[in-house]
């Protein structure tokens, strides 16, 4: 455990040494702060003035999802090079020529990357939360809790990319992961839309068919996002199948981690 924590710490420390990390964080914060204008604007639809707090509420929800999706890309970029970069710069030999178990090394690297992205995302979500609070006096209870719920997706992605990068070139493993996420978004997003109140109101006769088994067992990344959104707006959440999406993702994390450890143990260095 001691070595695992040390390697996690080194991973965070190493990533934070890069200036690009701070540039990215700064740019993201500027982007988040730019939405302040949305909170103080006057919006008129069909001659009626919209409630600015309601607008701010919706903007915050959209930005929440944009930040989470942006973090997917960041965690993919950071995770895809963990093994090859360490191999090329001598870090792999540094750790594994010492009494460090391979499991400690790879889990420490992934945990460090995940923790860093989790904090990064939380800072951005907290910036939105505080901006909304300062501008409108509205506190969205559950906004920060939803951020933490979404962070489980980041761990899933980090583990998946790292696992794929054992067998595929880095870029291909990143593209493959994006593909897996994309399919999930189409499948689960479609399901959410078909069950939404808006569609039911528009087409009362529309009855969503029961989804195929593969759609039920597929990694529920989008569903975790939808579940987090339901925490924010206290709205309804339509789960696909009997398993909670968080449990679904945790099962996938455990399975992929086990496969990754088995694969990494056999890897020749």
């Amino acid at each position: 455990m001691r070595l695992f924590l040390k390697i996690t710490g080194y991973t965070i420390f190493d990533q934070m040494r890069h200036k690009s990390f701070y540039v990215l964080l700064g740019l993201c914060l500027i982007f988040v702060l730019m939405i302040r204008g949305c909170y103080s604007g006057q919006y008129v639809v069909n001659g009626k003035l919209l409630d600015s707090i309601a607008v701010a509420w919706y903007v915050s929800n959209i930005v929440f999802q944009v930040i989470a999706a942006g973090m997917f890309l960041m965690v993919i970029l950071l995770s895809m090079k963990i093994i090859t970069r360490d191999h090329d710069d001598g870090s792999l030999v540094l750790f594994l020529s010492r009494p460090v178990f391979r499991q400690q090394y790879i889990l420490g690297r992934i945990a460090g990357t995940w923790f860093l992205c989790l904090v990064f995302m939380f800072i951005l979500h907290a910036a939105v939360f505080l901006t909304l609070w300062a501008r409108t006096g509205t506190i969205i209870f559950g906004y920060l809790a939803a951020s933490l719920v979404c962070s489980i997706n980041l761990l899933f992605i980090a583990v998946l990319v790292c696992f794929l990068s054992l067998y595929l070139p880095d870029f291909i493993s990143a593209v493959f992961t994006v593909g897996i996420l994309f399919i999930g978004y189409i499948s689960d997003g479609g399901y959410q839309i078909l069950n939404s109140q808006i569609l039911k109101a528009a087409i009362p006769s529309a009855v969503p068919s029961s989804p195929a088994v593969w759609r039920i067992v597929y990694p529920k990344v989008y569903m975790v996002q939808a579940y987090a959104a339901s925490i924010i707006d206290q709205g309804s959440f339509y789960n696909m199948g009997p398993v909670n999406p968080i449990v679904n993702i945790i099962i996938y994390i455990v399975l992929i981690t086990a496969l990754m450890l088995a694969g990494f143990n056999k890897k020749e260095i």
Partner: peptide
Amino acid sequence: RKGVGYLAEHHMIPSYLSGLDYLRRHASLI
């Protein structure tokens, strides 16, 4: 590998680490 020291033929040190950081990291791991 407890009590084993290893020097590779083409020894590599991560470019973002100083020699001191590198040695401290090794020291910490053992």
